[in-house]
Amino acid sequence: MQIVNFITRLMHRADRFEAMVVRLGVGDELERLSDRSGVVDRAVDRCLGCDQTGPCQQWLDQNETAPAAPDYCPNHDLFERLMKVSTASRTAATTP
């Protein structure tokens, strides 16, 4: 039965990671990464080790969009890098 619990926990963490990607609007940047699969695997692993699942879910429930991930998020730096790429892409697209 423990394997079922682990898989359920993994799925919930992966769902929260995906929800964070949506809230921060960095899905396109994540998709463009050459090692997307490895990046996502490592990010979900960081989620798996996180002890802030309650606050994370509460943050997700309260934020449809956000300018940054919460400071306690183990993927905060990853999201910040993706957001910088997103901002740079939007700036380049609007600059004549």
Rank of each mutant, 00 (worst) to 15 (best):
R42H: 10
C73I: 10
Q2M: 12
L30E: 05
G54L: 13
R81E: 09
V85Q: 02
R16I: 05
T94C: 06
S89N: 15
K84T: 05
D41W: 05
T94K: 13
A66T: 10
R32W: 06
P67K: 12
T91A: 14
A66W: 04
K84Q: 14
G54P: 00
M83R: 15
E31R: 12
Q52I: 00
L48P: 00
T91W: 05
F17G: 01
K84M: 09
I7D: 12
S34D: 15
L30G: 03
D51G: 14
L24T: 03
R46V: 02
L48Y: 11
R23Y: 00
A92P: 02
N63E: 07
S89Q: 13
A19F: 01
D77A: 15
G49I: 05
S34K: 12
E64C: 00
E29V: 04
C56K: 02
Y72M: 06
P74E: 07
M11W: 09
D61H: 07
R90N: 10
P67Y: 05
L60P: 03
L78I: 04
G49S: 11
S34N: 13
L10N: 09
V39F: 04
A14F: 09
A14G: 05
Q52T: 12
L30H: 02
A14W: 03
E18I: 10
R42Q: 09
A14I: 08
M83P: 00
E29G: 03
L33W: 03
L82K: 02
L24E: 04
G38V: 10
V44D: 04
P96A: 14
T53L: 10
L24M: 07
G49V: 07
D51L: 08
S86P: 00
Q62S: 12
T65Y: 07
R81I: 08
S86D: 14
G49R: 04
K84R: 14
V26F: 01
R23W: 00
L30Y: 02
C47M: 15
Q58S: 14
M11Y: 08
C47V: 05
M20Q: 10
V40H: 02
T91K: 10
M11F: 09
E64L: 10
V39H: 02
T8M: 11
V85M: 09
